[in-house]
Computed example of a mutant assay.
Amino acid sequence: MLIAHFDLDSFFVSVEILNDPELKGKPVIVGGGERGVVSTCSYEARKYGVHSAMPMKTALRLCPHAIVVGGSRGEYSRYSRWVTEIIAAKAPLFEKASIDEFYIDLTGMDKYFDPFQWTVDLRQQIINETQLPISFGMASSKMVAKIATDEAKPNGYLHVPAGREQEFLAPLSVGKIPGVGAHMREVLKNIGIEKIGDVLHYTPVQLEAHLGKWGPELWEKAQGIHRGTVEPYHEQKSVSTETTFNENRTDVEGMLNDLVGMTEKIAYELRQDNKMAGCIAVKIRYPDFETTSKQTTIPYTFYDDELIPVAKELFMKLYRKGTPVRLMGVRVSELTNEAVQTNLFSNAEKKSDLYKAIDSVKNKFGKGMIGKATGKKKS
């Protein structure tokens, strides 16, 4: 296999700097309030020990002169789509792993062109068109390519040729291996493993005795062996629901109530699948079967209170006042699993907990148990 891994450097910060160039070169933290967490931060802030997912209070104690910005979710979505479109137009097979991270499978492409130079050129095109810094790593597996990207940052690239994976990995901290967190690093340190190369001083059987089933897997990863494949990115997947009324309707308030219920249903399904939508559409069919629809792009979300106002607005723009309606539908598309990254802002943690509680009740007692007051159907 030949895999390239792209990662937009400090993506949220980079977008904020494009929107406000005065932030360039300064310690910038993107996140929510004093009670929130750090979503990402500039390299200037990282020098003080600030890192993603750190409590904001801790970050400001380490770097009291940092500039804190709340985050521009809509802008992040827009730039992410822009980069996705550039890659989609060029890459034979790619996976969008998150809002700012991509894998490209270039296996077999060396018959037609130099894959490394092709990837260098693609990176430069992204930089030229979006002005965003981006790094990439290239290797024989997704894991090694991702580690190579981390080593190439900021704004660089690194190719690990096939057969040289162990040589590349050996001097790196064992914490560079995916799945090795702080606790596991401490466990490994106690048995003399601090660098990835140290892992190979043990046999898989010995590691299993210390670490259980994780031992042999760690031994393989230390050699650069990883069997993960690039999962094709499908932007056109969607979730939709629609209803044909028993009688043609003209009661706008009642139809809006039904629209709320339909949107809640879709939002619930998104959360169950841990997907977010970047586009929402409303459809109306009239008695003569004329069907019209209107859609708009939105910051990625799976929350009722963010989808419902947009759905209502689309309906009001689309509906021909006084004209009976036969069918109504709602559809969301541009689905992605970027939920975690786009939800590290102000009140997102509280909101996430609230919706988890609501969904828990729905899962236990049925989807119709809880809904917006305006979305309840008349008995």
Results as ranks from 00 to 15, higher is better:
residue 86 I to R: 04
residue 88 A to D: 15
residue 111 K to T: 15
residue 46 R to L: 02
residue 70 G to S: 10
residue 78 R to Y: 10
residue 41 C to E: 10
residue 35 R to S: 09
residue 96 K to T: 06
residue 99 I to M: 03
residue 42 S to L: 07
residue 51 H to K: 03
residue 61 R to W: 15
residue 37 V to A: 11
residue 99 I to T: 05
residue 71 G to I: 00
residue 50 V to K: 07
residue 125 Q to Y: 09
residue 46 R to N: 02
residue 97 A to R: 03
residue 96 K to L: 13
residue 82 W to Y: 14
residue 85 E to I: 03
residue 84 T to V: 09
residue 122 L to I: 13
residue 88 A to I: 06
residue 36 G to L: 06
residue 92 P to W: 14
residue 80 S to V: 03
residue 44 E to H: 06
residue 95 E to Q: 09
residue 112 Y to H: 13
residue 72 S to E: 15
residue 50 V to D: 02
residue 94 F to L: 02
residue 90 K to V: 14
residue 38 V to W: 06
residue 93 L to G: 05
residue 96 K to F: 07
residue 51 H to E: 06
residue 107 T to M: 12
residue 108 G to E: 14
residue 34 E to F: 02
residue 128 N to L: 14
residue 55 P to Q: 08
residue 127 I to Y: 07
residue 83 V to T: 11
residue 61 R to E: 15
residue 96 K to H: 11
residue 84 T to R: 03
residue 40 T to S: 05
residue 120 V to R: 10
residue 54 M to H: 07
residue 62 L to K: 08
residue 123 R to E: 06
residue 93 L to N: 11
residue 92 P to F: 13
residue 94 F to Y: 13
residue 73 R to C: 09
residue 50 V to F: 11
residue 124 Q to S: 11
residue 112 Y to C: 11
residue 101 E to Y: 09
residue 50 V to T: 04
residue 85 E to H: 07
residue 126 I to Q: 02
residue 99 I to E: 04
residue 119 T to P: 01
residue 81 R to S: 12
residue 91 A to N: 03
residue 65 H to M: 10
residue 92 P to V: 09
residue 48 Y to W: 10
residue 122 L to D: 01
residue 40 T to R: 01
residue 75 E to H: 09
residue 52 S to I: 12
residue 72 S to I: 00
residue 93 L to V: 09
residue 75 E to T: 00
residue 37 V to G: 05
residue 79 Y to N: 13
residue 102 F to P: 00
residue 44 E to C: 01
residue 53 A to K: 07
residue 77 S to H: 12
residue 36 G to F: 00
residue 43 Y to L: 00
residue 119 T to M: 05
residue 38 V to C: 01
residue 128 N to Q: 15
residue 43 Y to A: 00
residue 112 Y to M: 13
residue 74 G to W: 09
residue 38 V to Q: 04
residue 75 E to D: 15
